Amino acid sequence: MPELPEVEVTRLGISPYVEGEQVQKVLVHQAKLRWLVPNEVHLVEGLTIEKVSRRAKYLFLHTSVGDIMLHLGMSGKMRVVESALPRKKHDHIEILFTSGNKLVLNDARRFGSCLWRGANEPESKLISNLGPEPLTEAFDGNRLHQLSREKQTPVKSFIMDNSVVVGVGNIYANESLFLSGIDPRRAAGKVSKARYLRLSENIKKVLALAIEQGGTTLKDFAQADGNPGYFAQHLRVYGRAGEPCEVCKKNIKSKVIGQRNTFYCIGCQR
């Protein structure tokens, strides 16, 4: 599943080719995604995409009458190509521009979505109760410490709660906890303020580095055969069960926490 860094790289990748472009036509080839694609998305035809923004893992194409709200789901990806190029399998939505290019949403598993929010409508319930963005000043260790008091839930599940902070997916939670020396099984309420301060900084560091590394794939968003997705990352614990820790050489352990595979070092994390 594309996580926050992958979605942010998608935003960075499509923005130069979408912002300021006039929409000629919206083609919905498959309306049955996670939710039915509403007819209102056609309201953008003839209008200009003023801005592309992101909130959590949702992307917004802003116009004067409202926003198209996109989510990549489990397998979705976007690319910008020439409008004349034929559709590929699983290209469900094409937004054609008068410039001769088109923005394409491809989603093999159809867990993604394309929704609409009118200019005068309230914020979607899908994002109204989300926590702060992790790379902003609104997110820090003080917030984590305050919200965690008395909580018995594992700290890994706690930082993956979107009401606490958005976008800390499974890979990035594992890596951040390792860098902070915190056992992912530890109760969130048992983690000290000092350790949460360190954890919040490492979450920012891990996500920012992932986005920076993803920047090398930006050219792929404007290629006919572009297939932007996950980018090369140096993973210290994730997916390395049974392998020696790079720091202490003890074997990396694996455990399912909150229905997600969790990886940690018993020597470095306590």
Rank of each mutant, 00 (worst) to 15 (best):
I171N: 02
S200I: 02
I95E: 11
F178P: 03
G267N: 04
L70G: 07
E19Q: 10
A194R: 13
P228S: 11
E50H: 05
V206Y: 12
G46L: 05
R11H: 05
V7F: 02
G73T: 04
I127A: 02
T48Y: 14
K205C: 03
N202F: 09
N261Q: 09
K151Q: 08
Y17I: 00
V41E: 03
R109E: 10
V164D: 15
K190F: 14
G189S: 08
G13N: 04
R185S: 02
L85H: 10
G131M: 11
G226Y: 01
R110F: 09
T217I: 09
W116E: 04
E121Q: 12
G20K: 02
V247K: 14
N129W: 11
V166K: 09
Y58P: 04
K77V: 00
V18P: 02
S83R: 11
V168P: 06
L27S: 15
D140M: 01
K57T: 03
L47F: 08
H234E: 14
P228I: 03
Y264G: 05
V81M: 07
F178L: 03
G189D: 10
F178D: 00
I159F: 08
L4S: 12
F221E: 01
G118V: 01
G118R: 05
H29N: 14
K51Y: 00
K253H: 12
S124V: 03
N227D: 09
I252Q: 07
R143H: 06
E82Q: 12
G66M: 04
D140K: 02
K253E: 14
N261S: 13
L47Q: 11
R186K: 15
K151I: 03
L103P: 05
A187E: 11
A208W: 09
I159H: 10
K102M: 07
K102Q: 07
R186G: 08
N120W: 14
K205N: 10
F221M: 03
S180H: 05
I257N: 12
Q213R: 15
T10N: 04
I182W: 09
E8K: 02
S157A: 11
A232K: 15
V155F: 04
D107L: 05
Q22W: 14
Q22I: 05
G214T: 03
K156F: 01
V81Y: 06
C114S: 07
L144I: 02
C245V: 06
T136D: 05
R54W: 08
